[in-house]
């Protein structure tokens, strides 16, 4: 059953220069106990969407559509209910938040704080709970006495995960949890996330611009471009056989070491990310699309079916255009 349902969610920031449509009509479903990956380049609206889920956006942002958490409309929740939900049901690990740990407070006290504030532990039992949480993220209990600067980047990221776990949420939203960590530390953090998913039945929304990382951890994947989902489906399929040219470019960006095709042949995507205040008409990807057709600048693209449980917003998957054997997209 669906733990989270997004129905035509949009977010518009109002700034001096006008309106920034950062998220433009996103509909997605997350089943309980599963993991959904959200990919897309910087500025595509990933973090805005994540923050909208728990109404953490600044005041100048207007949210439209419906967000149902366990059937309950998040956008209609009263403040008190929302606060309870944020701690007990869903929590966010923010992008770059490991730098936001309080530098002069011991790790253990920082983890214990939400427990005490929300009455989930008494001061005397909090210490045991902190030790338990540290153990869950693979850190020794004595680390509770450390200050943030005594920890490495990967260890600080584990602390952030421990804090997200503190109130035993059913849903964790992780915004770029491993970006900027080195490969080995990234592997440690991903292994930890996978264990938590498998052992505790937690649901996850994970945001990244690295498709290979998402494909590794998540069941399903949604690719965003210019505030819209342009493709979604089972993660391995989206990664290995992308149907949207933008997903194909993302997938090709991180080569498989050993693959002769990518040897001395880095693959990128030309052009610049679109300006949300001045989006190209038709398919907003058309100025950068290597396989654009004449109709693309005027075409109303939608998420068309693109195989079992798959959808893609590209003219090449429109049923009437589809050829009997699927064409593979090549982006160079």
């Amino acid at each position: 059953m669906a733990l989270l349902e997004l129905d035509d969610v949009s977010v518009t920031y109002r700034i001096a220069a006008g309106e920034v449509p950062a998220v433009r009509g996103v509909s997605l479903t997350l089943d309980a106990g599963t993991a959904l990956g959200v990919a897309g380049e910087s500025g595509s609206g990933k973090s805005t969407l994540a923050m909208a889920l728990l109404r953490l956006l600044p005041r100048d942002a207007r949210v439209g559509g419906r967000i149902l958490l366990d059937g309950e409309d998040v956008l209609a929740m009263k403040w008190g209910r929302l606060r309870a939900v944020r701690w007990a049901e869903a929590s966010i690990v923010f992008q770059g938040a490991q730098h936001g740990l309080n530098p002069v407070q011991r790790i253990g006290d920082q983890i214990a704080e939400p427990l005490l504030v929300h009455g989930l532990a008494k001061p005397d039992s909090a210490r045991g709970r902190v030790a338990e949480l540290l153990e869950q993220v693979g850190l020794p209990a004595w680390r509770a006495r450390s200050y943030p600067h005594e920890l490495s980047g990967g260890q600080r990221q584990r602390i952030m995960i421990a804090m997200a776990l503190a109130c035993s949420p059913r849903l964790i939203i992780a915004d770029e949890p491993t970006t900027a960590l080195d490969v080995m530390v990234q592997a440690q953090v991903l292994t930890l996330i996978k264990e938590l998913l498998a052992e505790r039945g937690i649901s996850l929304i994970m945001i990244s611009h690295d498709l290979s990382v998402l494909a590794d951890v998540c069941d399903r994947l949604a690719v965003m471009y210019a505030g819209r989902v342009v493709e979604h489906g089972p993660s391995r399929e989206v990664f290995h056989d992308p149907k949207h040219p933008y997903s194909a470019a993302l997938a090709a960006a991180f080569p498989t070491v050993g693959d002769p095709v990518s040897r001395l042949a880095p693959k990128g995507l030309g052009g610049d990310p679109p300006d949300p205040m001045d989006l190209p008409p038709g398919c907003s990807f058309h100025p950068r699309c290597p396989v654009a057709l004449d109709v693309c600048p005027t075409l109303d693209v939608e998420l068309w079916p693109a195989g079992p449980e798959r959808r893609a917003a590209c003219v090449h998957v429109r049923p009437e255009k589809a050829e009997p054997a699927e064409t593979t997209l090549e982006v160079s």
């Binding site: 380049e41 910087s42 611009h209 690295d210 498709l211 933008y246 470019a249 993302l250 090709a252 960006a253 991180f254 880095p266 693959k267 990128g268 995507l269 030309g270 990310p273």
Partner: peptide
């Protein structure tokens, strides 16, 4: 970003 990486 992943997409810009290859270009550089």
């Amino acid at each position: 970003d992943a997409s810009v990486r290859g270009e550089i």
